[in-house]
Amino acid sequence: MVTYNLIGAGLIVIGAGFGLGQIGGKAMEGIARQPEAAGKIQTAMIIVAALLEGLAFGALILGK
């Protein structure tokens, strides 16, 4: 039973890591293309990252 939980936790972390990478990478790209919009892009990036993080933590805690 414990093993399944750990596999699930690993999957969650892989998914969340992939998602965070996407968000960060795309934000970098956006800032490089349009440096004057850096502030707005950063805010939006943090919000999306926070939502993703909430989901990942929720899954980790529910799966514990």
Binding site: E53, G54, L55, F57, G58, L60
Partner: peptide, 11 residues
Amino acid sequence: PFSLLVRLFAN
């Protein structure tokens, strides 16, 4: 509210 509370707590 759940996402708000879990995010802060878990972090």
